[in-house]
């Protein structure tokens, strides 16, 4: 098949296996489906920064509260471990905590992790690949949660569904990496919202606090 066309002046080599199981033998594979209590989310973003810059920003886990929603604090506890504190909703006194361990660390390319005890059962990986045509980096995140459907539905109603949170966090990561801030409207003036305005804010996910952002860009 490779020889069916010989004139492809800018074509790049087809990867045999792509990020987070997206490509296998030159063929696209869909994301894993939810089953047996496991929920999966796979999302990607093209970011105009180098793979190594993005890897460094991601790997600096104590900075995660700058761009991950609801994360109050992250403490590095060892070469491969960290402790995470996450707010769960409107009540600032309520939080969940867990420890996380890096399973695989390939600088500039990939980080894989899993939780090792605490209030959250999750695992995931992030892959940094040069985008076709030298247009930046494709960052792909694959994350898995163990959580009942009921709990997930509850999360959707009270704040952010964890799957959507992974998607939003990658969006925040991209904005922070490309611009040095995360776009926000919380804190701007408005007239009285009334019942319908407030209901819409919840439905649109506008009640989840936008992370702080504010990251000094390497010039």
């Amino acid at each position: 098949m490779e020889r069916a066309l010989t004139e492809k002046p800018h074509a790049e080599t087809v990867p045999q296996s792509g990020a987070a199981g997206t490509i296998l033998n030159g063929h696209y594979l869909p994301p894993p489906v939810d089953k047996d209590g496991k929920q999966w989310v796979r999302t990607s973003a093209l970011i105009v920064k180098s793979t190594s810059e993005l890897y460094e920003l991601w790997r600096d886990v104590e900075k995660a509260p700058l761009w991950q929603e609801q994360i109050a604090e992250v403490l590095v506890t060892g070469p491969k471990t960290s402790h995470w504190v996450m707010l769960t909703g409107d009540d600032p006194d309520k939080s969940i905590e867990w420890d996380s361990e890096v399973l695989n660390d390939e600088p500039g390319k990939r980080v894989a992790w899993r939780s090792i005890g605490g209030d959250s059962d999750n695992a995931g990986e992030v892959i940094f690949e040069a985008a076709p045509g030298g247009r930046g980096t494709i960052v792909t995140v694959l994350q898995e949660f163990r959580m009942s459907k009921l709990a997930s539905t509850w999360e959707t109603l009270t704040g952010r569904n964890p799957k959507q949170a992974v998607i939003e966090n990658l969006r925040h990561f991209k904005a922070l990496a490309e611009t040095g801030e995360i776009p926000r409207i919380q804190g701007q003036p408005h007239g009285p919202r009334g019942t319908s305005g407030n209901a819409k804010k919840s439905i649109y996910g506008e009640k989840v606090a936008t992370p702080a952002g504010e990251h000094q860009l390497a010039s």
């Binding site: 093209l46 105009v48 247009r135 930046g136 959507q164 998607i167 939003e168 969006r171 991209k174 904005a175 490309e178 611009t179 995360i182 776009p183 926000r184 409207i185 649109y204 996910g205 506008e206 936008t210």
Partner: peptide, 25 residues
């Protein structure tokens, strides 16, 4: 427009990737 994303660099400013806090909608 943010001025830094792929779209801003292509001068398709109204397609900027980084300025809509409600991009998911």
């Amino acid at each position: 427009a943010c001025g830094n994303c792929l779209f801003c660099k292509k001068k398709i400013w109204s397609a900027c990737d980084n300025t809509n806090p409600n991009a998911h909608l």
